[in-house]
Simulated assay, not measured.
Amino acid sequence: MKDHRQERLGRLQREYHRNHPWRLGPGGLFVPHSYAEVKQDALSWWDDVGFILNRRRVIVWWRHPRHVYRDAIEELAQEQAGEFPFDDWLTQGAIPNYRKVGRSRKKIVSYTCRPPSEASRAYFQHLQAMEQELSAQGIDCDVHPSSKRKRLSWATGLDLVAPLEVRNEQELAVVADLACRLLLGSTTLEREFSDYCYNKATWLSEAAARM
């Protein structure tokens, strides 16, 4: 049985690609970031890359498992820090700044935000301390490679978690190649990274490299 919604998204993707040319670099890749200041021995966290597959765009949102692990640390720290004392200091209590318009009129051109409340500052200091403590100790969390395909009106999206390092365009091309083969069904993450698991021991072993 045909899935009319998926067929419609496929048509929209081809139409969008036809009417909005994509500026692709060497190797036919869309590379949104510069690596000019990235050290070649640096740890990688996340990146994006795009390419064309079957006359449709593919956008890959890649994360290293250590990024997922760090997110888990931040989430646990927020849970343990307790409820945030709500303080809308960005908009409430802001002081308007005026500029003269003519002799007798003036108009607002900007706002000066008031400082956060003492409760807000104390909360964020506590939260930061919690994150630092959990990061130093590590948490019980296992991260395995994963992928999730999304059909968008302008492209096929792929959320990809894989233990690769991306510090230049050549290494980014490896991410694109893996994503392409996963979408085509010519490989699996289990085949590529058999029994891989990023865990507390891995996180602690990289502590010096994260400094």
Rank of each mutant, 00 (worst) to 15 (best):
V68N: 01
V60T: 03
S104Q: 15
R18C: 03
I95W: 14
W61P: 00
Y198N: 08
L12Q: 09
Q92S: 11
R18E: 07
Q6C: 01
E118A: 15
D3E: 02
E37Y: 13
A176P: 01
A173I: 00
E37G: 04
D71V: 07
C141G: 04
S186R: 03
A207S: 09
L184N: 15
K148S: 07
D142H: 05
P145V: 03
L12C: 02
D159M: 14
L134R: 04
Y69N: 08
T156F: 04
A122H: 11
Y198I: 05
R63C: 14
E7T: 02
G50C: 12
E79Y: 04
S135I: 07
G25K: 12
S153P: 05
V38D: 13
L158M: 03
R114Y: 10
L183Q: 00
H64D: 11
T156P: 03
E190Y: 04
R105C: 07
Q92N: 09
H126A: 14
D87Y: 12
Y69K: 10
R56M: 12
P65E: 09
C141V: 10
I59M: 07
V175E: 07
L76F: 10
I73Y: 08
P21G: 10
N19T: 00
Q132K: 13
N19E: 06
Y16D: 09
E133M: 05
L158Y: 01
D71N: 11
T91W: 15
S146R: 15
L204G: 09
G93P: 05
H17M: 12
S117K: 09
Y35L: 01
R56N: 00
T188I: 06
V175S: 04
H67C: 15
S194F: 13
E171H: 09
T156H: 01
A129R: 08
E192Q: 10
H144E: 14
T156E: 11
F124I: 13
E79I: 00
R210A: 05
L134W: 00
L160G: 06
C197Y: 02
C180F: 08
C113H: 11
I73E: 06
F86R: 14
Q78P: 06
K100R: 07
N168A: 07
G82A: 05
T202K: 14
R99C: 09
A207R: 07
G138C: 01
R55I: 04
D159T: 08
R99M: 11
G185T: 15
S44E: 10
E83L: 15
R11E: 07
A81I: 02
G157A: 05
L164V: 04
P32L: 13
E83N: 13
S153W: 02
